[in-house]
């Protein structure tokens, strides 16, 4: 695939403005256009294009128009698109250690997650991604995952007993099982009706998505237990990246850094806003108190064990790093 990127640049190198070589970067993402990550990424694309006076043209394909979350990674790795945004959960199928963001209670607040990502923890993940052929431009914080259900307020892990909960990904499913509930797998389009008709008792997701998918209409109880810190990555095809002029790389890196910080601030604000709005719309909200978290964390141990098995050596190492703090 190097031949094409070379050709692209050959044909594009003709004109340049402000010293930036002309390049087109195709960037795909799969979140709804009004999500805070989407807004950050759109702004990133706009800023890069503007600051290079149009020379570095970032062409955005929003909201799954081009690629779904399942085919995003392979498309980035094979150069189908130059850049793409996808969840750490889905990157875990290529870089197993990425599953760490799904491990329950690894990060208990927004600041800690940010520190880890900016430090050695983040570096190790960046290297692992590059070994597979993708460079991480930025980590985009989605926010914490919570539970919605129709049976009862979930005030302790025991309250999960016997519930059927629509799950996302493998590690959250292990936690759901550890709490005595059963994970159910179904397409995203069917969750609303499944909650409405009690095909499932509950579902897990961020409150931003719950509000967007109108969970308040079909689920009664919301449990804020901040059990996992959902993370998304803006990744770029490594071959493509290595062929970019240093000046362009510098611009992209700088803009990515700004975007990452903006998104991190938004994540907290959005989580708070959407949880409040769900409450206003009639959901009964239970916030797990700080002092209870250790109990919830202890009960989720089987999910940690599962990650020990799937996360590889790097996964174990990362787990040790965050557990120490």
């Amino acid at each position: 695939n190097t031949s094409n990127t070379a050709k692209n640049q050959e044909s594009n190198a003709s004109g340049s403005s402000d010293g930036y070589e002309k390049t087109t970067i195709r960037l795909a993402y799969n979140l709804p256009q009004d999500h805070h990550i989407s807004k950050g990424i759109e702004q990133f694309a706009k800023d890069v294009t503007e600051k290079s006076n149009g020379a570095v043209n970032v062409q955005v394909y929003p909201a799954g128009q081009l690629l779904s979350d399942k085919d995003m990674n392979q498309s980035i790795l094979t150069g189908g698109v130059e850049m793409g945004v996808n969840s750490a959960t889905l990157w875990a199928s290529t870089v197993p250690a990425m599953g760490i963001f799904d491990v329950p209670y690894v990060f208990t607040n927004y600041e800690k997650a940010g520190e880890a990502i900016n430090g050695e923890f983040g570096d190790k993940l960046r290297v692992a991604m590059e070994e597979k052929g993708a460079k991480v431009l930025l980590f985009a914080d989605y926010g914490f995952a919570q539970f919605a259900n129709n049976k009862r307020p979930l005030k302790s892990p025991e309250d999960f007993k016997g519930l059927k909960i629509r799950s996302i990904g493998d590690i959250p499913s292990e936690m759901i099982k550890a709490y005595g509930a059963s994970p159910v797998f179904m397409g995203g389009g069917e969750v609303y009706m499944a909650l409405q008709r009690n095909t499932v008792d509950g579902a897990t997701s961020g409150t931003t998505a719950m509000l967007q998918r109108k969970y308040d209409e079909v689920a009664k109880y919301l449990t804020i237990n901040n059990y996992s810190y959902l993370e998304f990555l803006l990744a770029v095809n490594l071959d493509f990246w290595n062929r970019l002029p240093e000046k362009t790389q510098a611009l992209l890196t700088e803009e990515a850094k700004e975007t990452e910080e903006w998104i991190r601030q938004q994540a907290q604000a959005e989580d708070e806003r959407t949880a409040k709005q769900l409450e206003e719309k009639g959901m009964e909200v239970y916030v797990v108190p700080e002092e209870d978290i250790s109990v919830w964390k202890e009960a989720a141990k089987p999910a940690w064990d599962a990650f020990h098995k799937t996360g590889g050596d790097l996964g174990k190492e990362l787990l040790k790093m965050v557990d120490k703090e």
Binding site: Q74, T78, S93, T94, G133, G169, D170, P183
Partner: peptide, 18 residues
């Protein structure tokens, strides 16, 4: 070629079954 590349990168499904 795609299958070979997937094998080489060791890509698994994102589910419990891997």
């Amino acid at each position: 070629h795609h299958v070979m590349k997937t094998m080489e990168l060791g890509i698994t499904s994102a589910s419990l079954l891997r």
